Amino acid sequence: MERAYRNLAYVLLALLPIFVAGFWIPYLSEFPHFEASITWAVHVHALLLFCFLALLIIQPFAIRYKAFSLHRKLGNLSNILMPFILIFSVAMVWKEYHEHLADGVSTAAARNDEFLSTIQLLLQAVLYGLAIATIRKRDVAAHMRYMICIVLVVMPAGLARTLGYWFDFRQSSSQTVCLALTDIILAALIVYDNRGHRKVRPYVETLCAFVFIEAVWIALGRPI
């Protein structure tokens, strides 16, 4: 691992309390008696998300402490895990879309309400594909940065819920905070790596993608 990122594992570990807090009120606190809207697909989706989060945290620890064999095995596991994550994430988007329709929302409004979830899911898939492509080319620096970008795409799943359920933020406001924070982090990473003459392209690409997503979302009226 690059010396500049030697503490990355500890930074990612700090995400765990955010995700636990974000999923506590609407999900974890109801165990084992869940309301009817929490279907088996929701359980699988939550399990996959936490497994992926655990993998994102463990992987840099494995590199830091030279457990390279474990890192490779977990990397191979992610190749199996990611397709299921994407499939069940699509299922969640589809479920929420129909819940909007059941609440009397128009088709256009229901579609717009799922814009952020859908486009971020697509971005996650693209970034993961780039992460795999770069590691196969033995471009470790780019691979690590694409994985960091994936963390930033996943982060709102916990942070937005934490802001909404614990601090009474409106959904549009919590997503605005998450998107702004993501932009700030990416810009800071670009400046940080640029000063160290390190690779910045993954961060630049991801920041451009987020700026585009935010522009479309604002044009749609910040639907949630």
Rank of each mutant, 00 (worst) to 15 (best):
A91C: 07
I213E: 01
G22Q: 06
L159R: 06
I213N: 00
A188C: 09
F31H: 05
L179T: 05
A21M: 14
N112H: 13
N194Q: 10
L70A: 09
A21T: 05
E35F: 15
K199F: 14
E30V: 10
D183L: 15
S69W: 13
V154H: 03
I135R: 09
A108S: 04
D139Y: 15
L55K: 04
R222M: 11
Q171Y: 15
A141Q: 08
L81C: 04
H197M: 11
S78C: 10
G164R: 11
M147T: 08
I18N: 00
I213H: 05
M147E: 00
I63F: 15
S37T: 09
V93G: 01
Y192F: 15
S173V: 12
R198L: 15
D168N: 14
I190H: 05
I213Y: 08
L56E: 03
G22T: 07
W24Q: 04
L186F: 14
F23L: 11
L74W: 11
T107S: 06
L122V: 14
F50R: 08
H33L: 14
V11I: 14
V216P: 04
H33K: 13
A14Q: 03
E30T: 10
Y128H: 10
V204K: 12
R198D: 00
L220S: 03
R111N: 04
R170M: 11
S106C: 06
Y203F: 15
W166P: 07
L121D: 00
S174K: 10
G158Q: 04
G104I: 11
C51H: 05
A36D: 02
A108W: 14
L74A: 05
F52C: 03
T182G: 10
I58S: 02
I132F: 11
L163P: 05
V11E: 00
S78I: 11
P202G: 04
L77P: 01
L163N: 02
A142D: 03
T118Q: 04
F19K: 07
A62K: 08
H197P: 02
F84W: 14
T176G: 03
I38Y: 10
A141I: 12
I185E: 00
L53E: 02
R222G: 01
H98S: 03
I190T: 01
K137S: 06
H43E: 03
P223F: 14
D103H: 13
E99Y: 13
I224R: 07
L127C: 06
V44F: 12
S29P: 07
L15E: 00
L47V: 12
S117I: 11
A9I: 08
